[in-house]
Design a binder for these strands. Sequence first.
DNA 1: AAAATGCGTGAACACGTGTTCATGTATCGA
DNA 2: TCGATACATGAACACGTGTTCACGCATTTT
Lengths: 117, 117
Amino acid sequence: MSRADATADGDEITLLAETFRLLGDPTRLRILIACLGGPMAVGAIAEAVGASQTLVSHHLRLLRAARLVRGEKQARHVLYALTDAHVSQMLRDMIDHAREDDHEPAAPMPQPEGMTR
Amino acid sequence: MSRADATADGDEITLLAETFRLLGDPTRLRILIACLGGPMAVGAIAEAVGASQTLVSHHLRLLRAARLVRGEKQARHVLYALTDAHVSQMLRDMIDHAREDDHEPAAPMPQPEGMTR
DNA sequence: AAAATGCGTGAACACGTGTTCATGTATCGA
DNA sequence: TCGATACATGAACACGTGTTCACGCATTTT
């Protein structure tokens, strides 16, 4: 029925873009990648990504709102983890993708003309 | 050796974030999704996504620089298409992901306490 | 040649947004 | 109780960035 017809409507695109936008910040990306190793406390994340704890807290709020991470209070700490396997899976995929992309496919196609700028 | 250890270094993260950032703009996302159906001319894309041709051209330049799309000059038109199957595959995945995410998992886990804000 | 079409480029502006500073609120230890 | 730790929050600022406007360059058509 409504199977992926490749044409997402307005609301879907907005939602998608918002998710991508959050992933588009280096600090947030580092935070998420740090969480790939398992639940972490805010302070630990801050130290791991080399950012102030305040900053990490701010970003975590956004990531929480987008359901990319989930925080669980444990004793004095709040442990954050990726919401589901979907997120972590996609992160790993993109990391791999970026890595092979880094190998420069040896420009298999010389831009038409005057396109390379 | 350098197997995906989940911890991407600085440069990789910067590259990744940059890619995500480009995907994080609704207009660019629409452009890419429009290209999912096959190569399209700039004017056609502009009409499809409801944006000025100038704007689309600007975005296409960025998407080209990130190797997300590729332009091929054909007669008077320049046909743009997604660079490789990797990109299109990931786009489709994310669209699907966003769709099921939209179904609201019925809050399977009541936030610890005072986290929901 | 002249006009029209298709596309790219540069400058300029308005706005969003990432970051920091300062402060507030629980929770744990002495 | 007092202090310290761990985290969240609000205000304010600086900067990047998406968009538009105006223009330039090829190519095609008449």
